[in-house]
Design a binder for these strands. Structure first.
Length: 595
RNA sequence: GGGGGCGUAGCUCAGUUUGGUUAGAGCGCCGGCCUGUCACGCCGGAGGCCGCGAGUUCGAGCCUCGUCGUCCCCGCCA
């Protein structure tokens, strides 16, 4: 049977657009049979394409001999049909779908392709195991809610391009086959056939190339860049992911942050959501002290409060000794959370133990501001009163305390804060909440390697007033770096880069990267900086994360067309897989079992 | 590398606590009936390596050990 519907009768409308205004029109629709209601005589089918659903009606008196064929239509058959748009009979409207006031009375149709019974139903209300969805991802994508995520992502990408184009940026592609560099994540390696025994690395980000583009005078660069990191996966981490990467010359932090705010606002707007500018800012020190994390979720309170000065002379030994040792003592007021049971508190105690806390002291505020707590007896009325006042405690609140090294207090109370918000649904129905975190430390100390490592990356510029600290107190050096955070997720980060060879060399010294090693690994960059490299800086947005949040999805897998599982497998193509021995031979590789 | 959850029909799950007859349900699927349904309805039917492998036991979906897959988290991710 010739496909006359493809060659002669072209599609005139989508299944999502017909309304009463189209009544009486002859239309040609193409799509998939979503659901069949076969009355023996009349047959109703919900025809679905990417735009929506339209009910089509087969009537034996009109489709004649074709009606036998119509009876054969099953789920996911690919159909083409010609028919008349009709107003539905009185009282037969379906308010649930956009096209629910009309139907298409079929006059001619063709089964373009039958379908095996699908492994799962494509209706939105069916729950399907993610394994099954990923193995048949092409069917999953037919589901309107998955397609909607791809559409949203497309709109966000186009909004980003549109905004950056309008700001004078050039989209430039950088190599996917590049060289491995030290520092950072594990590389994905690609063996070279022409240079046996040598390997390319897939880029962790286009960082070095975009800096070279600045040296090249491009001035404003962006790229929707695929990045690769061979690290363990999470709900918000895939081995390959996408950044909206940008870099600008002759700018400072304010320029990049201002530009980024406009960019993110444009993306958010393309998702039909709102974002008010300017985005509030916190320094890294403020973020850590108030929220315990460098990506604070500002949709709710529960801030960390310093109490060391109030408990240093209390009877409670743990706190007194912590203060004496110069450790940190902080508290959170769980507003109205005194209803937590003993079991809840035990759970929360083991929860913070997972982040290194040795315990979790708590105080329930009872009637008359009375403390109910295992540690209440160690605090005088005066101490209790001052702590209540500092934390704004009221009846029905519960106070949590952490006393330890700053890293432990920040981490455990910061995570506790998020856990409480989760349990009490404090983020429900909150608007998108952004913030900047600035003034990150330039360096961190790696206890294992016994050396300083770059917190952001080794090309980040130190604050000019802190440069001298590189020699005296390196850990106090602040970076010209900034992260943008949405709802407690880091969705982007960047910095002003080092653009002078002497400062870059100095930083490599601090990082204990030898001249020889630096020359070997980054020589091309160091050399480039000697040819009048302009001051420059930029930022990259974690695009998958941003789109996932805008889509309201808990995992970035939901906004990636063909995502991988936690073991890095593609269940559809079964990648990664074994290769032909001949391919290995050509590459000069031999695979050996390593114990 | 580590901690935790899950794995039973095509799909979603119950059954596992306390081992005991022929492993169930809803949806889907197949056949029949049905001209106004819209998650159509009614009647009938098929469909199971209880992830896989060992072990304990008279007997294992259920207990033990191992293993594989998947999800969440810690480490890791400049």
């Amino acid at each position: 049977m010739a496909e006359k519907f493809i060659t002669e009768l072209k599609r005139t409308h989508t299944c999502g657009e017909l309304t009463l205004a189209d009544e009486g029109k002859q239309v040609v629709l193409m799509g998939w049979a979503m659901r069949r209601r076969d009355h023996g005589g009349l047959i109703f089918i919900d025809l679905r394409d990417r735009a929506g659903l339209t009910q089509v009606v087969f009537n034996p008196e009109h489709t004649g001999g074709g009606h036998e064929v119509a009876h054969q239509i099953r789920s996911e058959y690919c159909l083409a049909l010609r028919g008349l748009v009709r107003r539905r009979p009185e009282g037969q409207d379906n308010e649930k779908i956009a096209t629910g006031r009309i139907e298409v009375f079929v006059e001619d149709f063709e089964i373009l392709n039958p379908s095996k019974t699908p492994p799962f139903m494509l209706e939105e209300w069916t729950l399907v195991n993610e394994n099954t969805r990923l193995r048949y991802r092409y069917l999953d994508i037919r589901r309107p809610e998955v397609f909607a995520n791809l559409l949203l992502r497309h709109r966000c990408t186009q909004a980003a391009r549109g905004y950056l184009n309008a700001q004078g940026f050039l989209e430039v592609e950088t190599p996917m086959l590049t060289r491995s560099t030290p520092e950072g994540a594990r590389d994905f390696l690609v063996p070279s056939r022409l240079a046996r025994g040598s390997f390319y690395a897939l880029p962790q980000s286009p960082q070095l190339f975009k800096q070279l583009l600045m040296v090249g005078g491009v001035e404003r660069y962006y790229q929707v860049a695929r990045c690769f990191r061979d690290e363990d996966l999470r709900a918000d981490r895939q081995p390959e992911f996408t950044q909206v990467d940008l870099e600008m010359s002759f700018v400072d932090e304010e320029d990049v942050m201002g530009l980024t705010e406009g960019l993110v606002q444009a993306i958010v707007a393309s998702a039909g959501k709102e974002m008010t500018l300017p985005v509030p800012r916190l320094t890294w020190a403020q973020a850590m002290n108030r929220f315990g994390l460098d990506a604070p979720d500002l949709r709710f309170g529960l801030e960390l409060t310093e109490v060391a000065d109030l408990v240093g002379d209390a009877e409670f030994k743990l706190f007194r000794e912590a203060v004496a040792k110069g450790l940190m003592v902080k508290a959170i007021n769980g507003k109205g959370m005194a209803g937590l049971s003993r079991k809840d508190l035990d759970d929360l105690t083991s929860f913070v133990a997972g982040y290194g806390a040795k315990g979790l002291a708590w105080v329930k505020i009872k009637e008359g501001m009375e403390w109910q707590s295992p540690i209440a007896k160690f605090f005088s009325a005066g101490h209790q009163g001052r702590i209540n006042e500092r934390l704004g405690a009221a009846e029905g609140d519960i106070l949590f305390f952490g006393a330890d090294a700053p890293r432990v207090v920040w981490e455990s109370l910061g995570r506790l804060r998020l856990e409480l918000a989760r349990r009490f649904e404090l983020t429900k129905d909150k608007p998108l909440t952004f913030c900047w975190v600035t003034d990150f430390p330039l360096l961190d100390y790696d206890l294992e390697a016994k050396r300083f490592v770059a917190m952001h990356h080794p090309f980040t510029a130190p604050k000019p007033e802190d440069v001298d600290l590189l020699d005296s107190e390196p850990l106090k050096t602040r970076a010209r770096a900034y992260d943008i955070v949405l709802n407690g997720s880091e969705i982007g980060g960047g910095s002003i880069r080092i653009h002078r060879q002497d400062l870059q060399a100095k930083l490599f010294d601090t990082l204990k990267i030898t001249r020889e090693e630096a020359q070997n690994k980054f020589g091309f960059l160091l050399e480039a900086l000697t040819f009048g490299a302009p001051p420059h800086g930029g930022l990259a947005l974690g695009f998958d994360r941003l789109v996932a949040i805008l889509a309201g999805e808990p995992s970035i897998r939901e906004v990636i067309a063909f995502p991988k599982t936690q073991k890095g497998a593609c269940l559809l193509t079964e990648a990664p897989g074994l290769v032909d021995p001949g391919q290995l031979l050509e590459l000069g590789l031999r695979v050996e079992r390593v114990s």
